[in-house]
Design a binder for these strands. Structure first.
Length: 484
RNA sequence: GUCCCCUUCGUCUAGAGGCCUAGGACAACUCCCUUUCACGGAGUAGACACCGAUUCGAAUUCGGUAGGGGACGCCA
């Protein structure tokens, strides 16, 4: 039987990098084993789940390239696959049926306490010694009594009885043998008073019905597994294999959250990171191989992935290393593909560049070694656009030097007989010629030329930049300088 | 408070009793290349949380301590 894994986000915002890593591991294992990867939407919290957020989550997964075999359609959000629907909000009747089964068996009961009452109980418990577990209500109504009350319009949640006091053992894929005492949790809610089921319940019903074989999820769910095991037993469903992944942490070793800065894949996309680099990086946050290999393509990750190398300790998300990894992936890209990502970013900054393949190829060849992210292209390419050329204030000193005018004139003269595009060597030859003919060297030589190319005395390396500028463009710029 | 999990260089990690005077990568630092930067190359520095036990021998096994994290919701 082939493996079936799922990623089950709740749509409350953009995809978090921790979530992305969970999705990735599930995806990798499914692909590695030739099984299915399923996307299920956990939108039972109607307060927080939004259509807009669902769209974001899906777009982020698509950007990462984690394609799913069953789930909701990336465009229409309609379910596809044999065990649908894949949105929990559309599976209410399925949950109702399952809840009824437990109710009939007496494994659950109706709890008529209100939020206020529960809050008061919790507050009291905290005051008494910080013990938070929700206690059983003083009176539990029989099914008939409860149904009569409900018929009168009273609201009640359905709770699962935790009566069987014993140790539950879990063979965790990441942590090995873990055991929980069942009195670690109190009677827990499976159906809210508005009829909407809650996470632990849906999760069990869906994983069982969707025939999920392995569940890789964040460590924060470890204690939920106890409740879920109780439900699996109550239904008589086989339990999947669980693996609880360590958390992704911020620099202060706390769970990565907003206050640490960028936490969503979307933000990393905006900052100019490549999906392959981000994937490669998060894959190595809590998983690794025995060899020294660190740069993985998507396919290499699939081939190399294995559950027994998942690390139980939390891992700090270090953007510096991500940056380095991004630069490696960036350089490995085909120039044509890379340009498809860079050019729109330049245009967004009002930078227009030549589009012929030969020029693009040359430009990327020269610039990409100094770029870590796609955003780094902006300062690199900015000097290319003639319309953006201007003589900056910090060039003023250069124009006070006596030799500057002579250098600029010699530069112009040299340009006139130069080819449309000079090579780096052409440029050096020309520059050396000026050094000899005008008789200046050092900054008196370099700075005026740099100003005549980029409008300021410091910045781009001319040997790289000049070959990317058309002769006409260079002449235009030096003319502007000579008018000063 | 209760329960659960975790603990190797600053960070990600390799390490499954002798291969470890603990390996790699990022970052840092030094030097080389380079008439700025970057890339590249060569180096330097830097860790087994602590205490006991088992063993001829422990980063690796066991126990305890400390520290960190997570959970304790009609959130997921």
């Amino acid at each position: 039987m082939s493996v079936r894994l799922r990623f089950a986000p709740s749509p409350t915002g953009h995809l978090h990098v921790g979530g992305a890593r969970t999705a990735l591991y599930n995806y990798l294992y499914a692909k590695k084993m030739g099984g299915q990867f399923i996307l299920r939407i956990e939108d039972t919290d109607v307060e927080r789940s939004t259509e807009a957020a669902l769209k974001m989550q899906i777009e982020d997964l698509v950007w990462l390239g984690l394609k799913w075999d069953e789930g909701v359609d990336p465009k229409t959000h309609e379910s596809f696959g044999p065990h649908g629907p894949y949105r929990q909000s559309l599976r209410k009747s399925i949950y109702q049926e399952h809840a009824q089964k437990l109710l009939q068996q007496g494994k659950t009961y109706y709890d008529f306490r209100t939020d206020e009452e529960l809050d008061a109980i919790k507050q009291q418990a905290e005051a008494d010694g910080g013990f938070h577990r929700t206690a059983r209500p003083e009176k539990i109504y029989s099914l008939e009594e409860a149904q009569a009350k409900l018929a009168k319009g009273e609201k009640a949640a359905v709770r699962f009885r935790v009566d069987d006091i014993r140790d539950y053992k879990l063979h965790d894929l990441v942590r090995g043998e873990v055991s929980f005492p069942s009195d670690m949790v109190g009677d827990f809610v499976i159906l809210r008073s508005n009829g909407m089921p809650v996470y632990n319940f849906c999760c069990v019903v869906d994983d069982a019905l969707m025939k999920i074989t392995h569940v890789l999820r964040a460590e924060e769910h470890l204690s939920n597994t106890l409740r879920q095991q109780m439900l699996y037993e109550a239904f008589g469903y086989p339990t999947p294999h669980f693996g609880h992944l360590s958390l992704v942490l911020g620099e202060d070793r706390q769970k990565l959250s907003k206050r640490h800065g960028a936490t969503s894949c979307h933000e990393y996309m905006e900052r100019g990171y490549l999906p392959d680099a981000l994937l490669n990086f998060i894959a190595l946050l809590g998983w690794g191989t025995t060899d020294d290999k660190e740069i993985f393509s998507r396919q290499e990750l699939i081939d190399a992935f294995s559950l027994d190398r998942l690390n139980p300790a939390g891992a700090v998300f270090d953007e510096t290393k991500l940056k380095w990894m991004n630069s490696i992936h960036l350089r490995a890209m085909e120039h044509k593909e890379l340009w498809k990502l860079i050019d729109p970013r330049l245009k967004a900054h009002g930078i227009e560049c030549p589009q012929d393949a030969e020029w693009v190829d040359r430009a990327l060849g020269l610039f990409k070694t100094s770029m870590e992210t796609l955003e780094d292209a902006i300062p690199r390419f900015q000097p290319i656009d003639d319309r953006l050329f201007s003589i900056k204030d910090d060039a003023a000193e250069v124009f006070t030097w006596e030799s500057t005018k002579k250098v600029l004139e010699a530069w112009k003269l040299g340009l006139e007989s130069a080819p449309d595009y000079m090579t780096g060597e052409d440029f050096e030859k020309l520059q050396n010629g000026i050094k000899d003919s005008v008789g200046v060297k050092g900054k008196n030589l370099f700075m005026p030329i740099r100003v005549a190319v980029i409008g300021q005395p410091h910045g781009a390396e001319l040997k790289i930049l000049v070959p990317l500028l058309h002769k006409k463009s260079l002449l235009n710029r030096v003319d502007q300088c000579l008018k000063k």
